[in-house]
Amino acid sequence: MSKKNRGLSGVVYSTDPDFEYQTEHNEFESTPDNREQDLRIQLDKKQRGGKAVTLITGFRGTAGDLISLAKKLKQKCGVGGSAKDGEILIQGDFREKVLQLLQAEGFRAKKAGG
């Protein structure tokens, strides 16, 4: 199933005029405290033409808080990146710097992978 259609119950079309799609809401209404977040930092090169990115996973909270954290990390590292689907991508290998920045903010973070 594609990422766009994960929340739908598999129904593509219905002839019932009163039918309404039932979607799952994985979106958090509020973001847990930083100490309750358990973030994993890893280096990823898959599907990126061999270029390395620092991948931060495990964020739970609102999309706005995810984007603001990503913006802060990108500014501190001086590089670009993106934030979507609960993951933050930072261009380049900044695992150590991101780990220090997240721990300074009070997050429980650690390196994952090789």
Results as ranks from 00 to 15, higher is better:
Met1Phe: 07
Lys3Trp: 06
Lys3Ile: 08
Lys3Arg: 13
Lys3Pro: 00
Lys4Phe: 04
Asn5Cys: 04
Arg6Asp: 05
Arg6Ser: 09
Ser9Val: 13
Gly10Asn: 09
Val11Trp: 05
Val11Leu: 14
Val11Met: 13
Val12Leu: 15
Val12Arg: 13
Thr15Phe: 10
Asp16His: 06
Asp16Glu: 14
Phe19Tyr: 15
Phe19Glu: 12
Phe19Thr: 11
Glu20Lys: 14
Glu20Cys: 06
Glu20Tyr: 05
Tyr21Ser: 06
Thr23Phe: 14
Glu24Trp: 14
Glu24His: 15
His25Ile: 11
His25Ala: 08
His25Leu: 08
Asn26Leu: 13
Asn26Ser: 08
Glu27Ile: 00
Phe28Ser: 03
Glu29Pro: 00
Thr31Tyr: 03
Pro32Asn: 06
Asp33Met: 09
Asp33Arg: 13
Asn34His: 13
Asn34Trp: 05
Glu36Gln: 14
Glu36His: 14
Glu36Trp: 12
Gln37Ala: 09
Asp38Ile: 12
Leu39Ala: 03
Arg40Gly: 07
Arg40Ala: 10
Ile41Asn: 01
Gln42Phe: 03
Leu43Cys: 09
Lys46Arg: 15
Gly49Val: 02
Gly50Val: 03
Gly50Glu: 13
Lys51Cys: 10
Lys51Asn: 15
Ala52Asn: 10
Val53Trp: 08
Val53Ala: 06
Thr54Glu: 09
Ile56Cys: 02
Thr57Asp: 05
Thr57Met: 12
Phe59Ser: 04
Gly61Ile: 05
Leu66Phe: 03
Leu66Asn: 02
Ile67Tyr: 07
Ser68Trp: 04
Leu69Arg: 00
Leu69Pro: 00
Ala70Gln: 01
Ala70Pro: 00
Lys71Pro: 00
Lys71Leu: 05
Lys71Gly: 15
Lys72Ser: 14
Leu73Asp: 02
Gln75Met: 10
Lys76Gly: 07
Cys77Met: 14
Cys77Ile: 07
Gly78Leu: 07
Val79Asn: 03
Gly80Trp: 03
Ser82Asn: 13
Ala83Asn: 00
Lys84Thr: 11
Asp85Ser: 15
Asp85Leu: 13
Ile88Met: 03
Ile88Cys: 02
Gln91Trp: 09
Glu96His: 11
Glu96Met: 10
Glu96Cys: 02
Lys97Gln: 15
Val98Phe: 02
Val98Asp: 01
Val98Ala: 05
Leu99Asp: 12
Leu99Trp: 05
Gln100Trp: 04
Leu101Met: 03
Leu101Tyr: 12
Leu102Thr: 00
Gln103Met: 11
Ala104Arg: 10
Ala104Pro: 00
Glu105Phe: 06
Gly106Val: 03
Gly106Cys: 03
Gly106His: 04
Arg108Leu: 07
Ala109Leu: 02
Ala109Phe: 01
Lys110Asp: 11
Lys111Cys: 07
Lys111Asn: 07
Gly113Arg: 07
Gly113Ala: 07
Gly114Glu: 12
Gly114Ala: 11
